[in-house]
Every structure is written in C-alpha cells, then in structure tokens.
Amino acid sequence: MIPPAFEYARPSSVDEAVRTLADGGEDAKFLAGGQSLLPLLRMRLAFPELLVDLGRVPELRGVREDDGTLVIGAMTTHHHVLHDPLVRRHAGLLAAATATVADPAVRHRGTLGGSLAHADPAGDLPAVVLAMDGELVAVGPRGRRVIPAREFFVDYLQTALAPDELLVEVRVPKTDGWGFKYEKFHRVAQAWPIVGVAALVRRDDGHIAEARVGLSNMGSTPLRAATAEEALSGASDPDAVARAAEEAADGTRPAQDTSGSPEYRAHLARVLTKRAVLAAAGMG
C-alpha cells in the first residue's frame, strides 16, 4: 500500500526540528526511524501534512554517561542500543529487551525514542524504561523539561509530550549490580508480546531488597506491577517469589484481541513475573 502525500523537512539540529514542527501547523509530525510510522502511513491510518525527519540530527544520537545515569539520544537505533558497551554494562535490561524488538533490519532503523514516543503498550521498551525508573527529556518552543517515565505514558499511543515537543533523550539510572530479565511471551518470533515482563532485582544478603517489574501489554499503557513489587521485597526463596508474583496482574486492565483474552494475559503476567524475577534474582 501507498502512503498519502505529505510535505517533508529534514532539519539538522534540535532547535531547527522544533521550530520546523511548530511552523508546520497542526498536522505536522516528527519522523524518527519510521518503523511504526511508515506502516501506519502505508495503511493510510495516519495523514500528516508535514513530516519532520529527525534522521540527520546528530545530537539526537548516541549514548553517554552522566554520573549514575546513562543518557541515550532519542534517535539512537535499537541496533546501536543493544550493542553499545555502556548500555550493556550499565543497563543490561534495556539491552536484553531491545534484542527482542522486531527483527534485525527493523532494529537498524527503529529508535529508542521513536518507540517510546509511539507509546504502544504492546511495545517492549516502554515497560522496560518504566521499570528502570527512566526519565524522558523533551524540548519544545517553551524549553526543555524532564518527564519521569511514570508520568510519560498517558494512554494508548498517548504520551505526556505536548504536540510541539520533541523527545530528545532517554535517561536511565545505571543498574550495576542489579539482576535483570525480560520475559517476552509471543506466539511467533515476530509477533508483539501477548505479555512482556521486565524485571530488575537488587539482592541483599540472600533476599530480594528491591524488585521493579514493568509490564508490556497489560493495559492501555505500560505498567508497573506495584503490588507484586512490594510483596517481593524481602523474598528469600522461590516460593516467596511465586507467591508475590501472584499479585502481578493487580490493577492491570489488559485488552482482548486476537492474541489473548484479559484473563489469559493476567495469568501470563503472574507466570512471567515469577519467571522473570527468579531469573533476575538468580534463583531460577
């Protein structure tokens, strides 16, 4: 299928990108890697008047350290993220989950910022950044602001970004010393997860000191399994983890679609949380 016509701009800096979008009116949109947007355009499910291509804005790419935080440019590709030595060393969960996104060719073009801004609750990375207590940095005509991941995902395909704001950076705290696991359950390799569970576990003296659990596809936004996280605190054996994981679907509102019913998704959230936490805690 064939995209509808649109105007095209290719800025070379963040300032220019933000300005170009603002001048482009209501139906202007940023184009990141295009791996979600291009299919939507081809299916004629989106009709932008102007696409502002971020592909030639060098400052949006790359990974750097900022003390205890990794700063990842929004236009850093999945491929780059999963191979980046800093990410692998300090944000293993992000690297592991990114390796499961789509397929190699899509990972060459798709970007971390793009998939977060797209905010598909079935995406792998929103739940991961949420579990990592990441922060998202936006730049707009009114300046720069930092949005905690917990406040970023507002609803299905909706974020806290204003229409004229550009996501420029993703900041994730380093998780050195934490165990991690991304459990993705899907029917075929390429399919979206029916449910995905991103677990981060910090152990202390044989028990779980702190666990963070992000859930993909368990509602209209990525979610944290807050009740389970609380119950996991202090768990020191697999049975305790399993009991805590029973709370994983608490407060979720998963959808009904061709790949699963809400009750099945709730069940999977519990099973996968148990498995992910056990693996992350080295108890598996």
Binding site: M1, Y8, L31, G34, Q35, L38, P39, R42, M43, D53, H79, A102, D103, P104, A105, V106, H108, R109, Q190
Partner: peptide
C-alpha cells in the same frame, strides 16, 4: 507486505540491512 513483516524487500543501506518498504 505492508507492515515490514515479510522482509522480501530487504536491501543494504550503508552497511546495514533495512526493509526498503518501510523507508522513504
């Protein structure tokens, strides 16, 4: 396909495989 699933259109762009149906 229309959704970047099938990969028939894969080409190499600057040393990386890409799906040329999902690229302008």
């Amino acid at each position: 396909c229309d959704t970047s699933n099938c990969g028939s259109c894969t080409v190499d762009l600057d040393g990386e495989s890409v799906k040329s149906c999902s690229l302008l």
